[in-house]
């Protein structure tokens, strides 16, 4: 019922449908859309960049939905979702829908329900979706399970973050943004990244952008569309498959009893896998 209201364009209906899916109701859609994943270390300006991107799409008359992910506390289960602080546009435009999502006990930077939440948005006419990841942790690459285009955000003065990220996310990244281009050192940071990338085989565009002044946003919007037109890579398909596999496991009806048996050494890991596949 919520979904019917949401399909008719009700924001409240959409929000309620998203809640149902977030709480575990599976959803998928045949509707197409373009999903952009924004990732990068804390403090590089992801939220501000998402805000500027959303404004740019809205100015072109395009509807855009934002899912901003923040971590849940592993102790209390609660979460402080503060991305709205830096997203003024979300409060201004009818063309912008913004929703904060807590990771709720999942270790990844992108909880597996996000894929289904994106499906709800597409189904309800929000074809352009921006996902902002948590920004830390080893599982940033989970964004590949949902995003068609992955933008890695870097900033001057943050150290050579790319070195540590090379092995994980870099194989999946489509565009690298050097944010805060209005600050000193942005040119050097961009040059460092370009030289580090030149060792690899993949040709990743590096764009300088300032979320503060708005410089470079138009070029970034263009670059995102160009990348999206070129299709989804094999490595991304692999991530999608892995993510769905993981989800299948965590939603398995016998997961609890299988874990019990593992704990009491009644079965081996191999036997547990067979049970999960059954």
């Amino acid at each position: 019922m919520e979904l019917d209201k949401a399909r008719d364009g009700s924001r409240l209906g959409l929000s309620q449908a998203l809640t149902l899916v977030e709480n575990g109701l599976p959803f998928s859609t045949e509707e197409e859309g373009r999903v952009i994943g924004i990732t990068g270390a804390p403090g590089v300006g992801k939220s501000c960049l998402v805000d500027k991107l959303a404004q740019a799409y809205a100015r072109n008359g395009e509807k855009v939905a934002i899912l901003a992910i923040d971590p849940s506390s592993p102790i209390s289960g609660g979460a402080l979702l503060g991305d709205r602080l830096r997203m003024e546009s979300a409060d201004l435009e009818d063309l912008v829908y913004m929703r904060s999502v807590a990771t709720r006990g999942e270790t990844g930077a992108v909880p597996s329900v996000v894929a289904d939440m994106v499906a709800v948005l597409k189904e309800c006419g929000w074809k352009r979706v921006i996902i902002e990841t948590v920004g830390s942790g080893q599982a940033e690459f989970r964004i590949a399970a949902v995003a068609d285009t992955i933008v890695l955000v870097e900033a001057p003065g943050m150290g050579d973050a790319i070195q540590s990220e090379k092995a994980g996310i870099i194989e999946l990244v489509d565009i690298i943004v050097v944010n805060k281009s209005d600050l000193a050192g942005a040119d050097a940071t961009a040059a460092n990244i370009i030289s580090a990338l030149s060792a690899g085989s993949k040709n990743i565009p590096v764009k300088q952008v300032s979320s503060h002044t708005g410089d470079g946003i138009t070029y970034l919007v263009q670059a995102i569309d160009e990348v999206a037109d070129s299709g989804i890579s094999r490595t991304k398909w692999q991530e999608r498959l892995a993510s769905q596999w993981m989800r299948k496991m965590s939603h398995h009806t016998n997961l609890d009893s299988i874990l019990d048996e593992l704990e009491s050494s009644q079965i081996s890991i191999q036997e547990a896998i067979l049970l999960l596949e059954a």
């Binding site: 209390s76 289960g77 609660g78 979460a79 402080l80 979702l81 709205r84 602080l85």
Partner: peptide, 19 residues
Amino acid sequence: VARALRDAGHEVIYTGLRR
């Protein structure tokens, strides 16, 4: 207050100033 509610296990969305 936002922090206390988070610690009690709720999901708290803080808007920021001057809304």
